[in-house]
Design a protein around this nucleic acid. Structure first.
Lengths: 219, 219
DNA sequence: ACAAGACGGTTGGAAATACAACGGGAAGGC
DNA sequence: GCCTTCCCGTTGTATTTCCAACCGTCTTGT
């Protein structure tokens, strides 16, 4: 656990909390870790949970498969990010999506009730934790809004440009890498992979962008 | 203001807070109201805000217009709901969407910094307010996830069924009203109005559903 | 070295959507 | 009563997407 303290200290959830405080909080929140291999499910649709998950190592996709095997990727979780917080906060609601490890992963689970219901005056950093959680929820909310912006575009080209522009903006550079391969990007944008691939090549031929695998340059 | 106290008391933001406490809190949060006529903008894209808005009366659409006048409706705000809370919480971020009154509306503005930064022990219900805000954010998060579920469907028919099923489920009955007319529903689901209208009629002819204006029955 | 699988690109036909234009009916204002 | 506006449905065409199939390259495991 010690080796992840600096990751935790810099995570959005524990921002502004000292390392000493962090150690005692982990006990207080009945923190446990678990390892997952690639393809394993951390959470499953329909489940009820009362812990938030924090990704210590690896990669997670929040996604959904329908009856015909069609995959839809909602979001990607990177190291230091939390997931499942919505359902942990709402308590009684069933999960709408699966959380699947896309790499060998290590996940830390924290009991949310302890965050929400513990007496605020009991520990100095407790209020800070709640406000951090609030900020994370607001940021995720904004992320979902931006994703809806991509998805509301009518054509594959517009969806791609909307997504790639955001990635470029986030990277602060016209040169950037995306965290998906072609199939995953198609499942993320809800379009056909082959059609998307063709559209990317058309845009490249028109000089709008260039790419190699998941490395992109926007012009 | 007095006439809205029972609405406020039953709102998700002020749930569990007594009427007396509520009165004093409204002062504390430097509450002000403002009226809007139909079509007027409450918030505009690009703006920065530090107040949450609570709709006392009327109806608001959170929406975005692109360069070519295409409208995209993100969500609908009904009486008692709050909006703008994401940006008020994040402080420095610019709004991504407009908030437009679709009916004559009355809006209450509350200073969010007072909610977030005031000493938690100062007032008994302050902690309650933060936790309520947390719950509202989590619920909105889930709402956006569900909307993404509709939007990730490939065909207009699937989008419609996904949306109508949710509305039916929310109403707890196969008979329900939707809060949109045809054009608004099309802008909400990001499809062509005429194609959507045709699809609705095909589904009616196939016996899947029936409808009259915004009144629907699912079979 | 070899086989198997993952990945990205390409193609052609079927299906669905977008777009523009039109018509009828209901609602609302004068 | 009349006119205007809004709302919904219909139609036809051009465009776009989906789907299935196939190929070449690169990686991985044995």
């Amino acid at each position: 656990m010690e080796k992840y303290l600096s990751l935790l200290k810099n995570s959005k959830l524990f921002q502004g909390i000292s390392e000493d405080e962090l150690r005692s909080m982990l006990d207080c929140l009945s923190a446990v870790t678990r390892d997952y291999h690639k393809g394993e499910y951390v959470f499953s649709r329909g489940e009820r949970i009362d812990s938030v998950a924090l990704l210590l190592e690896g990669g997670i996709h929040i996604q959904k498969e329908d009856y015909w095997g069609n995959l839809s990727i909602l979001s990607e979780i990177t190291e230091g990010e939390i997931f499942g917080e919505v359902y942990a906060c709402l308590g009684s609601d069933e999960l709408l999506n699966n959380a699947v490890a896309v790499k060998p992963s290590k996940v830390l689970f924290l009991d949310v009730k302890r965050i929400l219901t513990m007496c605020p005056s009991a520990c100095q950093f407790h209020g800070r934790l709640i406000r951090n959680l609030l900020t994370v929820l607001a940021q995720k909310n904004k992320m979902l809004t931006r994703k809806l912006e991509h998805m509301s575009r009518r054509t594959t080209r517009e969806k791609l440009l909307s997504y790639l522009s955001e990635q470029s903006q986030r990277a602060g550079s016209p040169v950037f890498d995306i965290p998906f391969n072609r199939q995953q990007l198609a499942d993320f944008l809800s379009v056909d992979r082959s059609a998307m691939s063709a559209e990317l090549c058309r845009m490249r031929d028109e000089g709008i962008l260039s790419f190699d695998r998941n490395h992109f340059i926007l012009n």
